[in-house]
Structure formats: C-alpha cells, structure tokens
Amino acid sequence: MFGWLRRRPASRPVPEALWQTVLQRFAFLRALPGDEALRLRELTSQFLAAKQFHGAQGFVITDEVAVCIAAQAVLPVLYLGLDWYDDFVGIVVHPDEVVAKRVVTDDAGVVHDWDEVLSGEAMDGGPVMLSWRDVADAGQSAAQGYNVVIHEFIHKIDMRDGAADGCPPLRDNSARRAWFAVMQAEYARFREQVIIAERFGGPAPWLDPYGAEAVDEFFAVACEAYFVNRARFEADFPALAPLFDSFFKQQAAGRGG
C-alpha cells in the first residue's frame, strides 16, 4: 500500500487513475472548484503520509480505501491545515458497524450498561474508528447530508481545546460567545423539531436526528451536511452556513494563522 509515497511523501500526489476513481465515487468532491480540488489532492497525499491505517475484523486496507477516507477527512481542514489533526496517528477501519459496550455510573451511584451500535468514533487524543460500509456509501448518503468521515473528524476538531462542546478552538472568549449565540439557538430549534417529529408525528427534519443528542453531536452532524450538501444545508440552516464559512475558510479569507 502507498507505494507511490515511499520517498518524499508530502510531494508525491495520489496517482491520477486512483484519484479519478475516488472522485467518481463522491460527487461532493468532484464539485470542488479547481483551486480547492488541487488543494484537496495535495492535502490528501500529506494526510496519507502522516497517518496509519489499520483494518479490523479481517478488513483489508487497500489504496482506494485509504484515499477515499483521506480525501473526505481533509475537507474540513482544506484551509485550516493538517495541524488540526496532529493529536493522533491511527485510523481503524471495520467492514461494517461496530457494537460497543458502554458502562456509566450516574450521580446516584447506579451503574448503567448497554450496547451501542457505532458507524464511527473519535477518541480524544486517540485514533478514529470508521465503518467502511458507511464510508463507501457516502456518495449516495450525501443527499441526506450524512457523512461518517466528516462527522468523526469534526469531533477531532471540536476536542482540540479539551472539550467536546460544539465549538471549535477560537481566538478568544468574545468569538466563543458569538459562536455559541448562533449554535445554541440553532441546536435548540433543531432539537424541538426532532421532538415534535418523534413524539407528536410532526414532519421529520432533513438533518440526521442524532444531532439532537447533544450540542457537540449537532455540530458534527451539521458539518457533515455543510460539506456534502451545501445547498440543502444552507436552505435549512441559513444562520449556520455563514458561521461555518467564517471558521472553515478563515485562512482563505486572511483571518487565520
């Protein structure tokens, strides 16, 4: 795997045939304008050189698998830079969803344990886990704004300041207050939509209802849609689109370091 990257990895692009194969899978990648497409390919190569992929449950990591994941993972940091992913190296890929056992002790000392089905998971300071089935289906699921790779890598961005709170690291407290003023309001609105749909038979929201679990999950779910189906996302969340633009494109606008 990665034979083309064995020497001077950061400067060696993904082979043309392989790159075109990956682009054909994902229309939201093919739709990037020329300068962003070139940047995506460059960062994908750098990402592949910096990370280690591991197959679980017998899953085999091929070049195509790795490039599919890397190309989607670098979308959120296209202008921020790969330093935002420097807290981990490993990416573990399962063939399908994973059942994880959870144990939590509540404030009263009662122990709760359950099984949780996961299509992905990002660990603070640790690796990222992904279901290949969900990764491979990202071209089709973009219509619903769903993308497991972007979801988990947004969690990585969110956790960089030590808290998964629905706000990425920002320059100061004033910027955080402005961010939360929009994010909390949109989260509350979305959560109400989900509750009305689930409890009272109201219309189901377009965005994945999992985003109603907590504000950090809402941030990750909203970013999935922002990157893979911008037009529909902007129509449903007109207040969030410019907020995300201001953060994810900050270097392009001359505001980032």
Results as ranks from 00 to 15, higher is better:
R8H: 14
E192S: 13
I157H: 00
Q250H: 10
E97F: 11
W114D: 06
P13I: 05
F218V: 02
L130V: 00
V22P: 05
M123H: 12
R41M: 06
P15S: 08
V149E: 02
G256K: 11
P242T: 13
T105E: 08
L78M: 00
I154Y: 01
P203V: 14
F233A: 01
S246T: 09
V111Q: 06
R30M: 15
F28T: 11
P205E: 09
A212R: 05
F153N: 00
K249Q: 15
V93P: 00
F2S: 03
E234T: 10
M183T: 08
A253D: 15
L48I: 02
R7P: 03
Q72D: 04
L75P: 01
Q57A: 14
A225I: 02
R8A: 14
K156H: 11
V148H: 03
P238Q: 10
D208G: 10
F26T: 13
F190N: 07
V148P: 04
E152A: 01
G139S: 15
V74L: 01
T62G: 01
F59D: 01
R7L: 07
R41T: 09
L18G: 09
K101L: 07
G3A: 00
D124I: 10
E198Y: 06
I69V: 09
P95R: 05
A122I: 05
A212V: 07
Q193R: 12
N229I: 08
D172S: 05
D236L: 12
Q251N: 14
G166I: 10
D96V: 08
A136R: 14
M183N: 08
A252I: 13
H94C: 00
A188M: 09
F247W: 13
R176H: 09
E116K: 10
V194Q: 14
C223P: 07
A222I: 06
A49Q: 04
Q251F: 14
V93F: 02
V74E: 03
L48W: 00
V14I: 09
G3M: 02
G109F: 03
L82S: 00
P238M: 03
L32R: 10
A73E: 01
A49V: 01
P169G: 02
H151S: 03
G254L: 12
V22E: 09
L170A: 02
F2Y: 07
A197M: 08
V89L: 06
F53Y: 04
L78T: 06
L38R: 15
T105R: 03
F26L: 10
L38C: 07
G34S: 12
S131M: 04
D158K: 02
S131L: 02
V228A: 05
R255W: 04
L29P: 07
I69T: 01
E116V: 15
M123N: 11
V135F: 04
V67S: 05
G257D: 15
A222D: 11
P9C: 02
R39G: 07
I154H: 05
A27D: 15
S119K: 08
L240E: 10
S174D: 14
E64V: 05
A222Q: 09
L75Q: 12
V93N: 02
A100V: 09
E64W: 09
A73G: 06
I195W: 12
L75E: 02
W84P: 04
L207Q: 11
P76G: 06
V104L: 08
I69Q: 00
Q140L: 12
G55V: 04
D245H: 10
